[in-house]
C-alpha cells in the first residue's frame, strides 16, 4: 500500500483522537509512533492491521471509522491541498462524481506508483447514481461515502448517500442528488493562494 494512504490514516487518527491515542493504536498495530512516510510503499497487511486495531481500540464499528476517515480527508484544515485537488474534478458535484472515474489517473499524475481504487459511475437518471468501487481493503466504499458526503457539502449540494454492500467483488454506493444548489458551498479559486 502506498505510504500516502497509510499516512492519511495516521493523520486522521492523530488529528481526530489526539497524539496519545494514535501512539496507543500504532503501538498495538506494531507500527512505530513516527508512522508512515507518504512517499514510500508499505506492505498491504499493515494498512489492514492498522484499520482493524483502530476500530478495536476506539470501540467503534470499522465502517464508521472508515467513513470518518473519508470525511476527514476533505474537511480537515490540515488537508486543504487534497480538498483543492479534488475540487479540480469539476465545477459541480455531478461533474465531480463523473471525475471519480479519472481519480486513479489524476493520482498517478503526481505519484506514478500510487494505486487508488478504480471507480465506475452509472447514471440512473433523476439525480440517481451508482458508484462502483474496487476495494483496496474491505470497506473502501465507506471511505468514499464519507468523502462524497464532505464533497457534496463543499459544493453546496444536498445528497443522500448509502453504502449498498458488495456486487461481484466491488463495493456499491448509491448517490441521490436531491438539490444541487442546496447551500452556497465553499469557495474554490482556481489559483491557489500565493505562498
Amino acid at each position: 500500500m502506498h505510504g500516502l494512504i497509510n499516512r492519511s490514516l495516521q493523520c486522521f487518527l492523530r488529528d481526530t483522537y489526539g497524539v496519545t491515542v494514535w501512539a496507543q493504536i500504532a503501538s498495538a498495530a506494531g507500527v512505530g509512533v513516527e508512522g508512515f512516510e507518504p512517499l514510500l510503499t508499505y506492505d498491504d497487511s499493515i494498512t489492514e492491521t492498522l484499520v482493524a486495531t483502530a476500530a478495536l481500540h476506539l470501540n467503534r464499528p470499522r465502517d464508521t471509522v472508515l467513513e470518518d476517515l473519508g470525511t476527514y480527508l476533505v474537511s480537515h484544515d490540515n488537508l486543504q491541498s487534497l480538498r483543492r485537488l479534488l475540487r479540480f474534478g469539476g465545477v459541480s458535484f455531478v461533474d465531480f462524481l463523473h471525475s471519480m472515474e479519472d481519480l486513479p489517473e489524476h493520482g498517478r499524475l503526481g505519484l506514478p506508483d500510487l494505486d487508488l481504487p478504480d471507480f465506475t459511475l452509472i447514471e440512473q437518471g433523476q439525480g440517481a447514481f451508482r458508484l462502483y468501487v474496487t476495494p483496496m481493503i474491505a470497506g473502501t466504499g465507506h471511505v468514499m461515502v464519507g468523502l462524497l458526503r464532505a464533497m457534496a457539502d463543499d459544493y453546496g449540494a444536498l445528497v443522500l448517500l448509502e453504502h449498498g454492500g458488495q456486487d461481484q467483488g466491488r463495493e456499491v454506493i448509491s448517490v441521490h442528488l436531491l438539490d444541487k444548489n442546496h447551500a452556497d458551498g465553499r469557495r474554490f479559486d482556481l489559483a491557489a493562494a500565493e505562498r
Binding site: 507518504p38 512517499l39 491541498s81 483543492r84 485537488l85 479540480f88 489524476h106 499524475l109 503526481g110 505519484l111 482556481l190 489559483a191 491557489a192
Partner: peptide
C-alpha cells in the same frame, strides 16, 4: 493548474 498543485504538494513532502 491541477498538475502544478500536485507537484507543489509532492515537492513539499519530498
Amino acid at each position: 493548474l491541477y498538475l502544478v498543485e500536485v507537484k507543489n504538494a509532492v515537492m513539499q513532502e519530498l
